[in-house]
Amino acid sequence: MLLIRCPWCGPRDEAEYHYGGQAHVAYPEDPSALTDEEWARYLFVRANPEGPFTERWCHTAGCRRWFTVVRDTRTNEILAVSR
């Protein structure tokens, strides 16, 4: 059970949060300008590194705010949290 520090509410149990996958996958500026392959990459392809991973979490059972976490996927250690 991870202890995640919500930037608004403080440290809370992982069970209060919702996982949101890789962070900073921006919605394309102009989707119609993308090829099918580029659009598919936006939709379906995500990084899966062994080591530090920047990911999104939402404090669903608390303030309902999304924020960013850097977590080491090898150890589950949370290296940074930011709004």
Binding site: S32, L34, D36, A40
Partner: peptide
């Protein structure tokens, strides 16, 4: 509409 969430996918093969 120029775009909405899902629009680009409707022209996928």
């Amino acid at each position: 509409k120029p775009d909405f969430v899902g629009k680009r996918s409707f022209s996928r093969v």
